[in-house]
Amino acid sequence: MKRITLATALIIALSGCQTAYYSAMEKVGIHKREILVDRVEATKESQEESQQEFQSALERLSTLINFDGGELQSAYEQLNSDYESSLASAEEVSVNINKVEDVAQALFDEWQDELAQYSSANLKRESEKKLTQTQRQFDRLLRSMRSSEQKMQPVLASLKDNVLYLKHNLNAQAIVAIRGEFKSLQTDIKSLIDDMNRSIADSNKFIEQMNASK
């Protein structure tokens, strides 16, 4: 019970921090709608960076499975560096998606609450219609973002397996074993990059829709 209480308190505290942040930004003329667009843009950019990191790791593995003599310790260190970079970029993507979801929820809650302030039934109806449309557009975007986010985890796990195996088996047999796993990982990374491309395209579309409806 104590653990649940502490977790709940932390969530409330973080929520309060975000609320204060949005309030402070509004005082200088930056509203939740603009913050949402900026955060979608930031998420898109982090996905593009993550694509590059995963592609780099795949290319490193491709070079490794064709290893023909030399220092395997150096090859391990390079692959481990690629894995760490991929992990860091994936974590940044997740953080950015969470930020997008947070500000979107705050925007939609505020929008819903303010519907009650209309005196004009026609304007209220139009605003409510626009809210529903924007929520649907955002829900599609969020599903796309979360889908690509989920696909990163098995790829990271596979990369880590290869790094660990090479770390403890710096010999030709390790290369043979990694070579056997390469095709599957190659397919997974290609699928991930394709999924990210769809998410990036959805982000661009959402940003255009938000800017067009200002």
Rank of each mutant, 00 (worst) to 15 (best):
Arg198Asn: 15
Ala88Asn: 14
Ser213Glu: 15
Arg39Leu: 12
Gln137Asn: 15
Ser127Gln: 08
Lys214Leu: 09
Met25Ser: 08
Ala104Trp: 03
Leu159Thr: 05
Ser158Tyr: 03
Gln105Val: 08
Trp111Gly: 04
Leu6Met: 12
Leu166Gln: 08
Glu53Lys: 13
Ser62Gly: 15
Glu34Arg: 02
Ser148Val: 05
Glu49Trp: 01
Ser203Met: 01
Asn211Val: 11
Leu185Cys: 03
Trp111Ile: 06
Gln133Cys: 02
Glu26Asn: 14
Glu84Met: 10
Gln117Val: 13
Ala75Thr: 05
Gln135Met: 11
Ala201Gln: 09
Ile35His: 03
Tyr83Glu: 01
Asn96Ser: 12
Gln52His: 11
Ser147Trp: 07
Glu181Pro: 00
Phe182Lys: 04
Tyr165Val: 01
Arg140Trp: 04
Gln150Glu: 14
Thr5Tyr: 11
Ser158Cys: 03
Thr134Asn: 02
Glu181Ala: 08
Ser184His: 08
Ser15Asp: 09
Gln133Ile: 13
Val37Gln: 03
Gln137Trp: 04
Ala104Gln: 07
Gly70Asp: 11
Leu141Asn: 03
Val103Ile: 12
Tyr118Met: 05
Arg146Ser: 07
Asp202Ser: 09
Lys151Thr: 06
Ala7Pro: 00
Asp109Trp: 04
Gln52Ile: 13
Asn98Trp: 05
Ser199His: 06
Arg143Leu: 09
Ile12His: 03
Leu123Cys: 00
Ile35Asn: 01
Ala121Ile: 13
Gln112Lys: 13
Ala177Cys: 02
Asn171Pro: 07
Arg140Leu: 12
Gly70Tyr: 07
Ser46Lys: 09
Tyr118Glu: 06
Glu77Gly: 02
Cys17Tyr: 10
Arg198Leu: 14
Phe67Ser: 03
Phe138Arg: 04
Glu114Phe: 07
Val155Ala: 14
Gln135Ile: 09
Gln153Phe: 05
Phe138Pro: 01
Leu123Gln: 02
Phe138Leu: 01
Met1Arg: 08
Thr63Pro: 00
Ser74Cys: 03
Leu156Ala: 02
Gln52Asp: 15
Ile65Cys: 00
Ser184Lys: 11
Lys130Asp: 15
Asp188Tyr: 07
Lys130Trp: 07
Gln209Val: 11
